[in-house]
Simulated assay, not measured.
Amino acid sequence: MALTEIDSVDRRILDLLIEDGRRSVKEVADIVGLSPSPVRRRIERLEDRGIITGYTAVVDESGLSPTFEAFAELRFAGDTKVSDITASVKGIPEVTAVYTVAGDPDAIVHFRLDDLSHLHQVIDRIRRGGHVIGTKTLMVLDSWQRGRD
């Protein structure tokens, strides 16, 4: 996707929708100082250009079941393709995100798990996949995300 030029009003609209995707067009318009029609057109343009790709609910998983989060740093052999790094873990249901990164490690994987035993099982599964040459696991103690206060 080619980079798309956006102005400061578009950026403010994006920030407001990131903070609360259920904001009405009127509420966004009031905050940015425009009428609803141009704000609606700007949002539609951002959607059409693929900058806004969807809207989602933010769920506090701790209210659903006794889960915890963890990350694993993964290291691969030097000749492993980036697409193979992602493919090696994206089929694992406990994986919520995979970030391939430059440097060491090669990837950072985010998990949502039931307990420590479950974490062991998932890490063992990744290690048995054949491509991973090293792991480092980190358990999340607490978290904060912008717009989710």
Rank of each mutant, 00 (worst) to 15 (best):
A2T: 11
I6S: 07
D7S: 09
D7V: 08
S8I: 12
V9L: 14
D10I: 10
R11N: 10
R11D: 14
R12N: 12
R12A: 12
R12L: 15
D15L: 15
D15P: 03
L16S: 09
L17N: 08
L17H: 09
L17M: 13
I18V: 15
E19I: 05
E19C: 06
G21V: 10
G21Q: 11
R22T: 15
S24T: 15
V25Q: 12
K26L: 13
A29C: 08
I31T: 15
I31S: 09
V32H: 09
V32S: 08
L34F: 15
L34N: 07
S35H: 08
S35N: 11
P36L: 02
P36K: 12
S37E: 13
V39E: 08
V39K: 06
R40P: 00
R42N: 05
R42H: 05
R45L: 04
E47D: 00
E47F: 01
D48M: 03
D48N: 14
R49G: 02
G50L: 04
I51G: 05
I51F: 06
I51E: 05
I52V: 14
I52K: 04
G54T: 04
G54Y: 02
Y55L: 06
Y55S: 05
T56Q: 06
V58T: 14
V58C: 01
V59D: 04
V59I: 14
D60G: 07
E61C: 02
E61Q: 05
E61F: 13
S62P: 00
G63I: 01
G63M: 11
G63E: 15
G63A: 12
L64G: 01
L64D: 04
L64E: 08
L64W: 04
S65W: 02
T67M: 02
F68Q: 08
F71T: 01
F71L: 10
F71A: 04
E73C: 06
R75L: 10
F76I: 03
A77L: 08
G78N: 11
T80Q: 07
V82F: 06
V82W: 09
S83D: 13
S83F: 13
I85H: 01
A87W: 06
A87I: 05
A87S: 14
S88Y: 07
S88I: 06
V89K: 01
V89T: 14
K90Q: 14
G91T: 06
P93R: 13
P93H: 04
P93M: 01
P93E: 15
V95E: 06
V95N: 03
T96V: 13
Y99Q: 11
Y99W: 13
Y99A: 11
V101M: 11
V101I: 15
V101G: 02
G103T: 09
D104K: 10
D104H: 04
P105K: 03
A107Q: 05
V109R: 05
H110T: 03
H110E: 11
R112V: 14
L113W: 01
L113E: 01
L116G: 13
H118Y: 00
Q121N: 09
V122E: 00
I126F: 00
R128P: 00
G129D: 07
G130S: 08
H131V: 08
I133W: 00
G134E: 12
G134F: 02
G134Y: 01
T135W: 03
M139I: 15
L141I: 12
W144P: 00
Q145Y: 10
R146E: 15
G147K: 10
D149M: 12
D149S: 12
